[in-house]
C-alpha cells in the first residue's frame, strides 16, 4: 500500500505527468519492480500511460488515483486495524 501511495504521490507532485525514470529515481525501486507496480497500477485504473510524439512514455493519475491519495490516511488506518493486506 505504501509503495503504491509513494508512486501516486510522486506522479501528483510532478504536475501529474511524469516519466518512468523520474519515478524510478524517487521511489527507490528496482527497474523490474517498478515495471511490475506500474503495470498493476494501470490495470487497476490508478494511472494511465501516454506515449508522446518522440515515443517517450509518461504517466498520469486517473480520478481513482486522486481518490486513493486523498483517502489514503483513512484507508490505511482501516486496513491496518483489520489486517486487510
Amino acid at each position: 500500500m505504501e509503495i503504491i501511495h509513494d508512486i501516486l504521490y510522486v506522479i501528483r507532485e510532478k504536475g501529474d505527468r511524469i516519466r518512468p525514470t523520474h519515478i524510478l529515481y524517487k521511489s527507490n525501486l528496482s527497474h523490474q519492480m517498478l515495471t511490475e507496480y506500474m503495470g498493476d497500477l494501470i490495470t487497476r485504473g490508478f494511472i494511465i500511460e501516454q506515449i508522446g510524439k518522440k515515443g517517450h512514455k509518461t504517466y498520469q493519475l486517473t480520478k481513482k488515483g486522486y481518490n486513493y491519495l486523498e483517502e489514503y490516511s483513512t484507508i490505511k488506518k482501516f486496513v491496518d486495524s483489520y489486517g486487510l493486506e
Binding site: 481518490n67 486513493y68 482501516f78 486496513v79 483489520y82 486487510l84
Partner: peptide
C-alpha cells in the same frame, strides 16, 4: 459499507471479502 468504500478505492480482495 466502509470496507466496500475502501475496496472501491484499492481493489484489495480482502476488503471485498470483509
Amino acid at each position: 459499507l466502509m470496507a466496500f468504500r475502501v475496496y472501491s478505492r484499492t481493489d484489495q480482495r480482502q476488503t471485498k471479502l470483509f
